[in-house]
């Protein structure tokens, strides 16, 4: 297993946001994370990528315990992520955004910047990979634009590319299609499938049920911080608990 989560719990004061969740993600697969608002999906992501520290429980990634590590350590171990609000370096060009995202895989420090021997090699490598990744997410034509000036869909794609360019083994996408119109969604779905083809596992939080059903290899359903079901899309959609708690009214829509 690439990612193993054991009885993970997060409490905020008296509120239990994530309650004893067990979860496993296999390398190179897509895991859909669904559940009503406030079910603890984003909190779960924040625990996995280190933005929050778990109250109790274990997270093992690629054989290493990562619970309680700082976000940048977890990122270096190979978990990339995007944020719900599509966080970018708004004032900087796309290429620079990509280069920053690749920075953790380079070794040049301050003294290399003064005497740029190793630096030149790494810079060239970073520039090549940045361009490659911009091409992969379909933004090669805007390479020199300022990130903040992009339309919403392009921002989403850039954020995904930035999560990918550091060569993670797993990426967490928090509502990649939020605030994106109908035509653009199919493009994003295609992109997510291409990510899987690269051998990268994907965890995706998504509200659009039909999309998540078609996309995911496995789906986990959360409600009030608890895992109420987990399995293939077929299994989950037939689970009586899920239908009652969540899908009952939502699935037909």
């Amino acid at each position: 297993m690439l990612l193993e989560i054991k009885s993970l719990t997060k409490k905020f004061g008296g509120l239990v946001a994530v309650d004893g969740v067990d979860l496993e993600v296999e390398a190179g697969t897509i895991m859909g994370v669904v559940g009503p608002n406030g079910a603890g999906k984003t909190t779960l992501f924040n625990l996995m990528s280190g933005q929050l520290k778990p109250t109790s429980g274990k997270i093992k990634f690629d054989g290493v315990g990562i619970d309680g590590l700082k976000p940048f350590r977890i990122a270096r171990l190979g978990i990339g992520r995007t944020f719900q609000n599509t966080s970018l370096f708004d004032r900087l060009p796309l290429t620079v955004n990509m280069a920053i995202a690749r920075r953790m895989r380079t070794h040049s420090g301050f003294f290399d910047s003064l005497v740029p021997i190793r630096e030149r090699e790494e810079e060239a490598d970073v520039a090549r990979r940045a361009l490659e990744m911009l091409e992969f997410v379909g933004l090669a034509g805007n390479a020199e634009s300022i990130a903040g000036s992009l339309p919403q869909i392009a921002k989403k794609r850039l954020a995904i590319g930035m999560a990918l360019v550091g060569e993670p083994k797993l990426i967490l996408l928090d509502e990649p299609t939020g605030g994106v119109g109908g035509d653009d969604i199919s493009g994003l779905i295609e992109l997510i499938c291409q990510i899987r083809e690269r051998g990268v596992a994907v965890c995706v939080i998504e509200h659009k049920m039909r999309m998540v059903m078609g996309l995911s290899d496995r789906i986990v359903v959360l409600n009030f911080g608890r895992k109420i079901a987990c399995g293939t899309p077929e299994e989950v959609s037939e689970d009586p608990g899920v239908i009652e708690a969540y899908l009952g009214s939502g699935y037909s829509a």
Partner: peptide, 9 residues
């Protein structure tokens, strides 16, 4: 926060 998530210490 983004820099942190992108592996920058």
């Amino acid at each position: 926060p983004l820099a942190d998530a992108l592996g920058i210490n």
